[in-house]
Nucleic acid binder design. Structure first.
Lengths: 97, 97
DNA sequence: ACGATCGATAACAAATATGTTATCATATTA
DNA sequence: TAATATGATAACATATTTGTTATCGATCGT
């Protein structure tokens, strides 16, 4: 029988439709983009999670869960956290990617 | 004493920072854009809420609550509903508006 | 060594979204 | 008229996020 592939890259995993549906892929890519921009912007502004919590109204444990992908946030939480970091969210057609 | 303004337009309301914070404004604008695109795309594809529910995996009452702004969705719900309608979500800098 | 701050996380309560099931009034159409 | 499909919504159960409080190990600077 054919060898079972045991280890592959993250890209291979993400592009395997038998394991990651297109919708999941969209969401995961979004979350990766989110986390990257969040952490980068927060640190570039010299803010700790506790300081961002104070400014945004979202508590530090929730921010930590966000940044470590431990939750699927609600959009109001996203707006609260992203706004003081200079970001917002937009709806765009799929083909623009 | 000065007259109290009782009735004003939606624009006036949205631009009054004593009543709507910048963050709330961002979220409300997003929701309005979301609902518009959702309903338009769904009807343009000739889908009922029940059919979209079947395709997306999000149940019809949840879709109805979304379209009538009765909930603050989680982002995975948004992706599930938007993907079959040809949309996705992106994080963009605030100044791009 | 000490104190302060950091992000991560545990445990539990509270809030909210979503699922489930059913029904309603309305519109459409045979 | 009768049958059907629609979106909205009620009521309740379930799932998940977020808040709350506290603590942990790690890191940095004194």
């Amino acid at each position: 029988m054919a060898d079972k592939k045991v280890i592959d890259t993250f890209s291979d995993y993400m592009n395997d439709e038998t394991r990651v549906s297109p919708v999941e892929r969209e969401r995961i890519n979004f979350e990766i983009s989110l986390i990257g921009k969040m952490i980068e912007a927060r640190e570039e502004k010299g803010l700790s999670q506790r300081e961002l919590a104070e400014i945004s109204g979202v508590k530090q444990p929730a921010i930590a869960r966000l940044e470590s992908m431990k939750s699927t946030p609600q959009i109001d939480t996203l707006f609260k956290v992203l706004h003081p970091l200079g970001y917002t969210i937009e709806i765009v057609p799929l083909q623009r990617r």
